[in-house]
Design a protein around this nucleic acid. Sequence first.
DNA 1: TCATTATTTAGAATTTCATCTAAATATCGT
DNA 2: ACGATATTTAGATGAAATTCTAAATAATGA
Lengths: 92, 92
Amino acid sequence: MGFQETFKALSDPTRREILHILRDGAKTAGEIGSHFTMTGATMSHHLAVLREAGLVTDDKRGKWIYYELNLSVLDEITGWIAGLRGESSDEK
Amino acid sequence: MGFQETFKALSDPTRREILHILRDGAKTAGEIGSHFTMTGATMSHHLAVLREAGLVTDDKRGKWIYYELNLSVLDEITGWIAGLRGESSDEK
DNA sequence: TCATTATTTAGAATTTCATCTAAATATCGT
DNA sequence: ACGATATTTAGATGAAATTCTAAATAATGA
């Protein structure tokens, strides 16, 4: 994983909004997509970026794939930021 | 400003390392650049991106331009992440 | 004022990214 | 097995980002 993929994933407004939508629980790709005007293929791409960054997990149940927020990666981000404040940290 | 520029700025490893280098105080563009192999022009570009995102401030003193970390923007990031944990926040 | 040093700006080359359309895969219900 | 639905994959396109070289700007010191 690493900060590279995480920050890249967070650098797109659509993807940040997706995370926001997932605050109150898992949703299917379709439900998430219904908040946007882009095609399903584009949504699928964004969800893949978020998944590869570890920011969401996916869970296939029958016909649907449920996406859910994964907060632990965000903890690493807050940790990295804390490291900038003096507690010396190694990660770049 | 806004999250767009901030996350974009943080999504590049060189720029994250620059922030790290600035942990222990302001440094000139040249001092910062000496940690990397890229040209001064490229460094200047990265510093401009960080400045536009509000992550650093610059202070011209004679021949040199000192760059310094600005932590307040990073507070907004931690706030945004906290908002993902339930405290409903509006920003995307 | 002239040469030198520090840094930025301009413009070009290459790569990466967001998005689309079309096609593929998988599952469900009949 | 068939048709409909949910989602992904493949391939293309245009826009944005990173990096470079070369030129410009600004400040210093002789």
